[in-house]
Write a protein that binds this DNA or RNA. Sequence first.
DNA 1: ACATTAGTTAAAGTCGACTTTAACTCATAG
DNA 2: CTATGAGTTAAAGTCGACTTTAACTAATGT
Lengths: 147, 147
Amino acid sequence: MATKTAVTEKRYRIGEFATKTGLSGPTLRYYEKEGLVKPHRSDNGLRYYTDADASWIKFLLHLKGTGMTIEQLKQYVAWRAEGDATITKRLQLLKNVRRGFLQEFEELQHSMTILNDKIDWYQGKVDGHISDNEGFANYLASLNHEE
Amino acid sequence: MATKTAVTEKRYRIGEFATKTGLSGPTLRYYEKEGLVKPHRSDNGLRYYTDADASWIKFLLHLKGTGMTIEQLKQYVAWRAEGDATITKRLQLLKNVRRGFLQEFEELQHSMTILNDKIDWYQGKVDGHISDNEGFANYLASLNHEE
DNA sequence: ACATTAGTTAAAGTCGACTTTAACTCATAG
DNA sequence: CTATGAGTTAAAGTCGACTTTAACTAATGT
């Protein structure tokens, strides 16, 4: 059996960790106050974070990126702290998040289409492909993007 | 030459228009105050909106959906009011918006991947495909989604 | 030793995007 | 003709997610 090699893990103080994660120091403290992350303390009382904390933060930021609010993240973290008994709850929460996200995603794609059409229309005007008095509504109707 | 048939266009009062656009009355007044929309007034002084206003609002909401702030929308509207001389500015603005949006879109897709992986992992735990003590980091590493 | 730079806390402030309130007037069905 | 439901305004309030401030202590380079 392999023996545990006691490689002391790297300790990041809040400034370095902020740079590493792309968050600000105050934001890290704010997340801590909200219970989203629990940094450790050195003997002198200063916070330190590890690479594991960085992975955790990254994951949280991805969840946040999918539209979860801080409150939802707190709920998730609270359930996680309760252990395996809450796994189905967490699974359900994440599935709900995914549902909302997919919905939002479709709307984003539609908005992207409209934005592209508008850009094409302006480009056409600038390049002189579209007559000076053709409105965007007409132009849109000339494409087949129904609402 | 065809004569103009004076079909009186439908007038929506703010309540009906709010329902139509999915915005609230106060939000419509707020957008008006910010100069994003200019409803008309009946003789009695009440606002009314037309179908053209509805199209305009929809378009604005699509722009907003791509990440434009109210301030950016105000800038866009201001340039629009200045006429054709600002077309290249507007085109440039929309292209910038698109650039940012595409960037954001990629991040969203990555977050979606992570979310899906996490859901699969939980599902595996619930279904017993994943051993009780396999962490998510290990599981992630077992997939080939590099950061 | 001492000047910088980084970290500590709690509390207050900011910002964007609305929402709510207050004190009105207008519209309309019975 | 009056009760009830929209609409009017300006101003204040809310909410989420931070950010800034103040008043301090710890760490570090010269």
